[in-house]
Simulated assay, not measured.
Amino acid sequence: MPEKSLLRSELLAARGLLSGENVRRAAEVLARRALALPELAEARTVAAYVSVGREPGTRALLDALRERGVRVLLPVLLADNDLDWARYEGAERLVRAGRGLLEPDGARLGPEAVLEATAVLLPGLAVDGRGMRLGRGGGSYDRVLSRLAGAGAEPALVVLLYANEVVARVPEEPHDHPVRAVVTPEGVRRFGGAQGFSAAPRA
């Protein structure tokens, strides 16, 4: 089994052991940590996603950003695995789509809409000490990151993970892009210009 596939299987198995209460509590802390990030506190437009299953939860964070007046863009999966985008208008406006995903039911804004975001929350399974992210392998966000790079856009790239998913090393390919920060229930770790781990007291 290729190295990336093996690591994905191990991490997904670990997530599968989490209870609903584990996921709910982690989501509450993740929302508080993420909302305190300057990159999100100062953002006018944030591209994000709706967590499903035992993914680190984003629902509370999406609602809090929207309440702040932030324009939140959510992905809409296209037939070729690329991503369109639509505005988040609340949980009641989400519909179940393919692969068990939840997507907004509003107007599609086009794949280029992500270029308007000053921060992008990326789904992932792991991040390593260099900020390299391991995704699920579908390639959708590789296209998004390539689109951002091609347009010269440099939004803050942020991943929400569980603490055990910050690993020593993620297998890397030439098209992979490092992220700026990872948020876990235990704290925030930054990469690039601002290294280190910042842990806030539990509320």
Rank of each mutant, 00 (worst) to 15 (best):
A168N: 05
S140V: 07
G135M: 14
V167L: 07
R143Y: 02
E154M: 00
E165V: 12
A149Q: 13
S140H: 12
Y162Q: 12
L161D: 12
E154V: 00
R147W: 01
V158S: 05
L161Y: 09
E154T: 00
A156Y: 04
V166K: 10
N164P: 12
E154N: 00
V159E: 06
L160T: 04
L160V: 06
A168I: 07
V144R: 04
A149D: 11
L157I: 03
P155S: 10
L157D: 02
L161Q: 08
S140Q: 05
V159A: 14
L157N: 02
Y141V: 07
A151S: 10
V144I: 14
A163G: 14
L160H: 10
R133V: 03
L134N: 09
V166P: 03
E154Y: 00
Y162A: 12
L145D: 01
P155Y: 05
V158A: 04
R147H: 04
S140I: 11
V167C: 08
G137M: 13
N164R: 15
Y162C: 08
R147S: 05
V166G: 11
E165R: 09
S146N: 11
E154R: 02
G139Y: 12
L160S: 06
R136E: 02
G135I: 12
L148P: 01
V166N: 09
L157H: 00
G150E: 14
Y162N: 12
A151R: 00
L145Q: 03
Y162E: 12
V167A: 07
L148N: 05
A149V: 11
V159R: 05
V166D: 13
S146Y: 06
V167K: 07
S146G: 15
G139H: 07
L148F: 03
V144S: 04
V159T: 14
R133T: 10
G139T: 08
V167S: 10
L161S: 05
Y141C: 06
R133G: 01
G135P: 04
G137P: 03
L148G: 02
V166Q: 07
Y141M: 09
R133Q: 10
G139F: 06
L157F: 01
A156L: 03
Y162L: 12
L145W: 01
S140W: 10
L157R: 00
R143W: 00
V159C: 08
R143P: 04
N164G: 09
V158W: 01
R147V: 01
A168F: 08
Y162D: 13
A151D: 02
V159H: 02
R143Q: 07
V159M: 04
R136K: 15
Y162F: 15
L145N: 00
G152M: 09
G137E: 08
A151E: 01
R143K: 15
R136T: 09
G150A: 15
D142A: 07
R133F: 11
V166W: 15
G152I: 06
L161K: 10
L134M: 14
G139M: 06
G152W: 02
A153S: 15
A153Q: 03
A153C: 05
L161E: 12
S140N: 03
L134H: 13
E165Y: 10
R136I: 02
V166F: 11
G138P: 08
G150L: 01
A168E: 15
P155M: 02
Y141D: 08
A163C: 07
V144W: 05
G138K: 09
G135R: 13
N164V: 11
Y162T: 09
L160R: 11
